[in-house]
Design a protein around this nucleic acid. Structure first.
Length: 609
DNA sequence: TAGCCTTTGAAGGTG
DNA sequence: CACCTTCAAAGGCTA
């Protein structure tokens, strides 16, 4: 995996993963973004007609079994004792923090302001979410004066996105901003943010009390100015490490931890990281009763409130064990996840598509279309997140979270013949469904394709490929860079390479496998390869965009999963709604129907590793 | 209502 | 070392 050495983009990973597609260059984004996004949406939309019955290779072994659950009795006793003491302490605190301290900022009171890595079920959309709530304010027309229109920040969407954005419009660096040394700076709110800090009752702008400011709030004035760059606002201040520890003390960037420390000591939020770095789980079990803290214990208040020192020991053990499962230190987000968190809202806003699966496909393509530099930023961010995470939870292991999620029900039996059977069954079912959909839709909506009938308000225009639909897809050698630059690509930053097939020359396609790795034959799904999701799929988005491929089987065994492919989502391209089919489109349809007289399907297989 | 879908990347386990 | 599996986010969809 790409590991940055602090800005150098050379080690960003395999070249094939870092191929820069500049079809969504920074400057061009405003121009072509809608187009590409909508195009993506159409691609995805069509591809979502996925009859796949997952032939995933979910391992039969239950992950939970592998989790180290056996603890020495002494340890259990210790934990029980701590648990009781903690519960007792919470009781003694008596809801001291139960009433909001920030009446003017109810959104800051969301308990999820705890450690973003703490999974607390429904209450854990992560602290980023609520920090994010601040950013939509930059979206108001009044904030249109943001220096750089290229910024993908909400301001960038100001003309498309409602002032009130989705709560999930989260900046990937939100947690990192949180770690700013200045986010606790009292009484120095950024001037540009002051208008939004209104008294909830009077509506008069006011200077928030330091205590009203969320520790997640990026108060750093410099950070505000850094919005100019698409990621500038995400990036640490120049020469200032995002995760730097103040000389005077460690201000823990992870709120939960900071809260814990501050609450425990009731003195200050400054502390040494080593002083407060608890065992991964004890952190949550302390359950500081602050409204901004969501600890599993607090979530279980109904039960924990009933705790009494006289509780039976075995009951306590059970309770503790139950509780022990709750604290969930989430994995640090990787680069793509950070990117996704930022861009999701953007994509959603552009096309009003809510389905995450489809959005993620778009995002995956966009991810590959990012320039090397842009990706490098996210890699760097992810690296810092991991670094911070490791500092916060030295003993944490990704393995700890194994089994937290329910295993997929998909049975992946090793017998291969059923696999092939299933494969063709899926094809048949898909064909049937396509027929039904098409028939019913065309009868109901003569002018509307099924896709459009489903499509929500915003119509995602799908553009026909202008050229070279059958160009060889990208390869790790960067052959895609040979693609002629599109007008939008011409607007891209100099650092950005020419546009690729990914979204401009091959707008109709969705998947995505490099031609060099393509197997033009059916491959019997063999070894499930989750790694393919990263390795092969990494190159997927940047390649073979000739057809809209519909994975039949997914979830971990993508590399060997055959794909149903529709050469053209013609149903989405009704002439009444779109421009007439291009010669290529017609040719594609023609050949397509010639190949599959009744079904708009072709089969390709995803490449195997 | 829990799990699936879908993406990429990271991490850990396995052979 | 290569490969495989799981999880991270997220929201509509499905059984």
């Amino acid at each position: 995996m790409p590991q940055l050495n602090g800005g150098g983009g050379d080690d960003l990973g395999a070249n094939d993963e870092m191929i820069s597609f500049k079809d969504e260059g920074e400057q061009e984004e405003k121009i072509s973004e809608n187009v590409s996004a909508e195009r993506d949406l159409d691609d995805v939309k069509s591809s979502l007609v996925n009859e796949s019955e997952n032939n995933s290779s979910s391992s039969d072994s239950e992950q939970a079994e592998r989790r180290p659950q056996t603890r020495p009795d002494s340890e259990s006793y210790e934990k029980t004792r701590d648990y009781f003491s903690e519960a007792l302490r919470r009781q003694q605190d008596g809801g001291f923090f139960k009433s909001p301290h920030y009446p003017g900022y109810p959104f800051l009171m969301i308990p999820d302001l705890t450690n973003p890595y703490l999974s607390n079920g429904s209450l854990s959309p992560s602290a980023r979410t609520y920090l994010q709530m601040k950013w939509p304010l930059l979206d108001v027309p009044g904030s249109a004066g943001l220096k750089d229109s290229r910024s993908p920040t909400p301001g960038h969407l100001s003309n498309k996105v409602p002032v009130v954005q989705h709560a999930h419009h989260v900046h990937p660096l939100t947690p990192l901003i949180t770690y700013s040394n200045e986010h606790f700076t009292p009484g120095t709110p950024p001037s540009h943010l002051s208008p939004e800090i209104l008294d909830p009752k009077t509506g008069i702008p006011r200077t928030p009390h330091p205590s009203e400011l969320s520790p997640y709030y990026p108060l750093s004035p410099g950070a505000v100015g850094s919005i100019a760059h698409p990621l500038g606002w995400l990036m640490p201040q120049q020469g200032q490490p995002m995760y730097s520890i103040p000389p005077g003390g460690f201000r823990h960037p992870y709120p939960a931890l900071a809260m814990n420390a501050s609450m425990s000591s009731l003195v200050s939020s400054r502390f040494s990281p080593h002083m407060v770095t608890p065992p991964p789980h004890s952190l949550h079990q302390t359950g500081i009763p602050h409204p901004a803290i969501v600890s599993p214990a607090i979530k279980q208040e109904p039960s924990t409130d009933n705790l009494s020192p006289s509780m039976h020991f075995t009951d306590a053990i059970l309770l503790m064990k139950e509780e022990d499962k709750k604290p969930h230190i989430k994995k640090p987000l990787n680069a793509f996840m950070l990117y996704m968190k930022e861009m999701r809202a953007k994509v959603v806003a552009e096309c009003t598509l809510k389905e995450s699966a489809a959005i993620n496909q778009i995002l995956g393509r966009r991810w590959h279309s990012l320039s090397r530099e842009e990706q490098a930023k996210y890699y760097e961010l992810a690296r810092k997140e991991r670094q911070l995470h490791s500092q916060l939870y030295p003993g944490w292991s990704a393995r700890d979270n194994y089994g937290k999620r329910k295993k997929r029900k998909r049975e992946n039996k090793p017998d291969s013949k059923p696999e092939g059977k299933r494969f063709f069954l899926q094809i048949a079912r898909f064909i049937l469904s396509q027929q039904q959909i098409h028939n019913s839709a065309s009868s109901l909506f003569p002018l509307l394709s099924p896709d459009f009938s489903i499509r929500s308000k915003k119509q995602c225009v799908q553009y026909l490929p202008s050229e070279k639909m059958c160009d060889s897809p990208a390869s790790s050698h960067g052959s895609m860079l040979d693609s002629p630059a599109t007008p939008s690509a011409a607007l891209a930053s100099p650092a950005a390479p020419a546009a690729t097939h990914s979204e401009q020359a091959q707008p109709l396609s969705l998947t995505t496998k490099p031609e060099g790795r393509m197997h033009h034959h059916f491959s019997i799904p063999g070894k499930a390869s989750g790694s393919s999701s990263s390795s092969s799929s990494s190159s997927s988005s940047s390649s073979s965009q000739h057809a809209l491929s519909i994975p039949i089987g997914t979830s971990g065994s993508q590399s060997t999963t055959p794909i149903l492919t529709r050469p053209i989502p013609f149903t989405s391209l009704h002439p009444s709604m779109l421009s007439p089919p291009s010669p290529f489109h017609q040719a594609a349809l023609h050949s397509h129907h010639a190949l599959f007289q009744s079904q708009p399907l072709s089969l390709v297989t995803k490449p195997t590793e």
